[in-house]
Amino acid sequence: MTRPLEGVTVVAVEQAVAAPLATRNLADLGARVIKIERIDGGDFARGYDHVVHGTGAHFVWLNRGKESIALDLKVPEGRDIARRLVATADVFVQNLAPGAADRLGFGDLRAEHPELVVVNVSGFGAGGPMEQRKAYDMLIQAEAGLIAITGTPETPVKTGIPTADIASGMYCSQAVLAALLRRWRTGEGATIEVSMLEATVEWMGYALYTQMYAGTQPTRMGLSHASIAPYDAFPTRDGQMLIGVQNDSGWRTLVTSVLAAPELADDPRFTTNVDRVAHRAACDAAVAGHTARWTNAELDERLAAAGVPAAQLKEVGQVVDHPQLRARDRWRKVGTEFAEIDALLPPATFADVEARMGDVPALGQHTRALLAESGVDADDVIARGIAGPPRA
C-alpha cells in the first residue's frame, strides 16, 4: 500500500532536535526529506557524542530516512543550489538562528513559490523582547514554567528528555500535514511559525489554569500527585512499585485484594480520596508497610490481577528489552554510515502499511546525486568547496 506522504518532497535547513524531529516524522510517513547541512561538520547533533557505533545518539534518533547534501550557504553558489532544491519541493522547514534564514535568502520563498509550505521553527517567535535570545531546550523549559513544577518540593529539575524540542517538533509536523491538506484542496501554500516557548507553554495546560483561576502554582510532588493518594513509588523487597489509585473503589480493591489489609478500607482517615490526601503521609506509610512484603514481580502480578493501576520503575536498559515492545514487534533495523542499528517504529501504526524506516545518512552522502538532479556541475562545485563531503 502507499505510504501517506509518498510523492511529497521536503527540504530542510535544520539542526539539533526540533526541526529534525518534525522532518523525520514526515520521512517515516513516506516523504522525501532532503537535509541541507553545513559543509564544515553538518548538523550540530552529529557531534553531541559518538555512542552509536561512532554516530551521535541524537542524530540517529532524528535523521533516519533523509538524504544529506553538504552545502556552503555562506556563498551565493551554495544558496543558489539550495533554492534549486526548494523550487521542486512541497515543504521547506528551517530552524536556524533568528534572522539567519532571511540573511541567507530564504525569507522570500513564498513570493517565488506561492504553493510552498514554509515552516520557521524558532525559540521565542518573531518579534517580542526575546526574539534574538538563544533557545536551548533547558532554557525554554525554564521560561515556560515547566522546571518550576517538575521535581521535588526541595529541588526543581528539567525533564530528562528534551521536552521543549519535542513539543515544537511535533507541532511542526502536525502543521505541515494540515497545510498540505489545505493545499491539496485549494492549491494554496502556507507560511507557518512554531515557537518552542509557545509549544511548551501549551503543554503546561492545567498548571496555567490552576495559576490563573486558583492563584496557586501546582506543587512539585516528585512521583506523587497533589490531588490523588496513594499515588507514588512504594518499596518492595527488591525495588519499588508505582501505584496510583484514583477513586475510592480502587482504594478498597488495593487494600483488600492486593495488600490483604481490609482494616484500611474503613479507616476514617482513608475512606475517600479527599481524606487520603489530607492524611497523605499516614496513607503512604500504611501502603508502604504492606508492599514491602513482596518482590516487584510478586506485587506486580497481584496488582495486575486486581486491576489496580501500577507500574514497575524500569531503568532504561529494561525499556530497551521491554516485553510489550518485543511482543508487538516494534523494533526494526536501519543503516548508518558505520553499522546497522535498531530503531523503534513510530507510535502511530497504520493497519495497511508500515512506516518507512530509512537509513541515517552520512554527512553529504547524497550531495553528488542531488547536485546532478538540480542541474549543477557536481565536479565543479565540489572541487571549489561549495558542496560535497566535509572539508578536511
Rank of each mutant, 00 (worst) to 15 (best):
G123S: 05
F124H: 12
F124E: 03
F124Y: 10
F124N: 05
G125Y: 05
A126E: 14
A126V: 15
P129F: 02
K134I: 08
A135I: 12
A135G: 14
Y136I: 04
Y136C: 10
D137W: 09
L139S: 12
I140M: 06
Q141V: 06
A144C: 09
A144I: 06
A144S: 15
G145R: 11
L146D: 02
L146C: 03
I147K: 04
A148W: 11
A148N: 02
A148K: 07
A148I: 06
A148V: 07
T150A: 01
T150I: 11
T152C: 07
T152L: 07
P153C: 11
E154V: 14
T155S: 07
T155C: 11
P156S: 07
V157Q: 13
V157I: 08
K158P: 05
T159Y: 03
T159N: 11
T159V: 15
G160M: 07
G160P: 08
G160N: 06
G160W: 05
A164I: 07
D165Q: 05
I166K: 02
I166D: 03
A167D: 02
A167F: 09
S168T: 06
M170H: 00
M170V: 01
M170N: 00
M170L: 00
Y171P: 01
Y171W: 07
C172D: 02
C172P: 08
C172N: 06
Q174C: 11
L177M: 08
A179E: 04
L180R: 03
L181P: 02
R182M: 03
R183F: 03
R183I: 01
R183G: 00
R185F: 10
R185D: 01
G187I: 04
G187L: 01
E188N: 13
G189F: 04
G189V: 05
T191S: 11
I192S: 09
E193P: 02
E193N: 14
E193C: 13
V194H: 01
S195V: 04
M196V: 00
L197I: 11
E198M: 10
E198I: 00
T200H: 02
T200Q: 15
V201D: 10
E202R: 07
Y206I: 12
Y206L: 12
A207V: 10
L208C: 09
L208E: 05
Y209K: 08
Y209M: 15
T210V: 12
Q211S: 14
M212K: 08
Y213M: 13
G215M: 14
G215I: 00
Q217V: 09
P218A: 01
P218V: 10
R220Y: 03
R220D: 04
M221W: 10
G222W: 12
G222Y: 14
L223M: 14
H225G: 11
A226K: 10
A226N: 08
I228A: 08
A229K: 04
A229F: 03
P230Q: 00
Y231E: 06
D232Q: 12
D232S: 10
D232K: 00
A233G: 07
F234Y: 13
P235F: 13
P235K: 11
P235S: 08
R237W: 06
D238Y: 12
D238N: 15
G239S: 12
G239V: 02
Q240E: 01
Q240H: 15
M241V: 11
G244Y: 01
